[in-house]
Simulated assay, not measured.
Amino acid sequence: MGKKGLVILAVTCFVFLLLYFGFLQIQIIRYSQVEVEEDVDYVMILGARVMGSTPSLSLQYRIDTAAEYLLKNKKAIAIATGGRGPGEDITEAEAIKKELVKKGIEESRIF
């Protein structure tokens, strides 16, 4: 394959990647607008980075959103997830539980 062939291959791959990431971005935007069901039985909060014992901004947003839902839907149970990584004094799940309790969610509703 000559130099021209390599350039065509590189451009084709680049265009394909742009289209692929564009498609993914459209899907993310599309599903971020979906209405959340009311009265679900369980809410799973995915873990994210904890700095020491303080949730990262990303995790705090998840906790805040879950707490808002759980306060409106008193029958829903929260499932906190996430392990303990480098620089984390507690597991991500423990950080989620601690923050939800601070926000008024009963500890018995958090697993």
Rank of each mutant, 00 (worst) to 15 (best):
M1Y: 10
K3I: 15
K3T: 14
K4Y: 05
L6Q: 07
I8Y: 06
L9A: 08
F16I: 05
F16N: 09
L17M: 12
L19H: 11
L19S: 12
Y20A: 13
F21S: 12
F21Q: 14
G22H: 05
F23D: 11
L24W: 09
I26Y: 05
R30T: 13
Y31P: 11
S32Y: 02
V34I: 12
V34Y: 11
E37M: 13
E38K: 14
E38S: 11
E38Y: 03
V40H: 03
M44L: 11
L46A: 12
A48S: 12
R49L: 06
V50G: 01
G52N: 03
S53R: 08
P55M: 02
S56Q: 06
S58G: 13
D64A: 06
T65I: 08
A67M: 11
A67G: 10
A67R: 11
K72I: 01
N73D: 01
K74A: 10
A76L: 10
I77C: 06
A78F: 06
I79K: 14
T81C: 10
G82W: 02
G82Q: 06
P86C: 12
E88F: 00
D89Y: 06
E94R: 14
A95G: 06
E99S: 10
L100R: 06
G104N: 15
E106H: 08
S108G: 09
S108C: 08
F111R: 14
F111M: 15
